[in-house]
Computed example of a mutant assay.
Amino acid sequence: MNAEVEPPTEGVPLIRPSTTGHPLYDAVVEACRTVYDPEIPVNIFDLGLVYTVEILDEGDVAVTMTLTAPGCPVAGDMPGWVQDAISAVPGVRQVDVDLVWDPQWGMDMMSDEARLELGFM
């Protein structure tokens, strides 16, 4: 039997939405903002490298993130930096960081603050 691969359903986001309504969300975002790509003077959150912050009621946090390029020299270290930063937030029980390459990061994912900082505005 030849199974056809279904294309992504139109209207289904490539990136899961974050749980922005959780009381820990702002603190977790601020923790992400303490982590920097060593080659770019902007934090990973404003660079748009953090795709999803999912927080469960028990304080478990799941982060889906990417890097600017698959060959990034800190690819092996960055998820641990993010995990360490978020683990320090009071109320966080466990942190899981998933590094993904799809969708691919693009400069359009940066915040206005990051674009300004890097001279793109």
Rank of each mutant, 00 (worst) to 15 (best):
M1W: 07
M1H: 11
M1P: 10
N2H: 13
N2A: 12
E4C: 07
E6Q: 09
P7Q: 09
P8Y: 08
P8T: 12
E10P: 08
E10C: 01
G11L: 04
G11F: 06
L14K: 13
L14V: 12
I15K: 09
T19C: 06
T19M: 05
H22F: 10
P23T: 13
L24V: 13
L24N: 08
Y25H: 09
Y25V: 06
Y25W: 08
D26L: 10
D26H: 13
V28G: 05
V28K: 09
E30G: 00
E30R: 13
C32Y: 03
V35K: 01
Y36G: 06
P38C: 07
E39Q: 03
I40P: 00
P41H: 01
N43Q: 00
I44P: 02
D46E: 05
L47D: 03
G48C: 04
L49F: 10
V50G: 01
V50R: 02
Y51Q: 02
Y51E: 02
T52E: 07
V53P: 03
I55K: 00
L56P: 00
D57R: 05
E58R: 08
D60Y: 01
V61E: 02
A62P: 00
V63C: 06
T64N: 05
T64H: 04
T64I: 11
T66P: 02
T66L: 06
G71S: 07
C72T: 04
M78V: 07
M78T: 06
G80P: 00
V82Y: 04
D84M: 05
A85K: 08
I86S: 05
A88K: 15
G91S: 10
R93L: 15
R93H: 14
D98W: 01
L99D: 05
V100I: 12
D102G: 07
D102A: 13
G106V: 04
G106Q: 08
D108P: 07
M109D: 12
M109H: 08
S111G: 14
D112Q: 14
A114W: 07
A114E: 06
A114T: 09
R115H: 10
L116W: 11
E117K: 15
L118T: 06
L118M: 10
M121A: 14
